[in-house]
């Protein structure tokens, strides 16, 4: 199962996730987001817009690589991948 790590900023909206080890069954980033929505209802709309596109100021990394497909989140995820959902640094 892929391991999911979140920016600590998301814990202020989803405090129930703080301190939890998050592992999800997923083969793409889109599936990771879908599984995370099951764990923490509402979180998908924080990470993506209602068309399923990654929000402009959010980054997702699979292992050390930033994902390429921000529209459909089709980037692959392996069984031992580490998926990071981060706040993009947007200047300053």
């Amino acid at each position: 199962m892929a391991k999911v790590e979140l920016t600590r900023h998301l814990y202020s909206f989803f405090p129930e996730l703080e301190g939890r080890e998050l592992h999800v069954e997923a083969s793409t980033v889109a599936e990771v987001v879908r599984e995370m929505e099951r764990v923490a209802p509402g979180i998908a709309f924080y990470v993506c817009d209602e068309r399923g596109r990654l929000r402009m100021h959010v980054n997702v990394f699979v292992d050390d690589e930033r994902i390429v497909d921000r529209a459909r989140l089709s980037d692959g995820v392996g069984p031992h991948s580490r998926v990071l959902i981060m706040q993009a640094l947007s200047g300053g």
Binding site: H9, L10, F13, G42, F45, Y46, V47, D49, E50, R55, H57, V58, Q87, A88, S90
Partner: peptide
Amino acid sequence: GHGHWGAKLSRSRDGGETWQDAPQIKY
């Protein structure tokens, strides 16, 4: 309007002591 996380509806049923995300508006 969260800079990174988009627009969200929030509501409080205790006069503003605590706030919770409401069901969200989507197109």
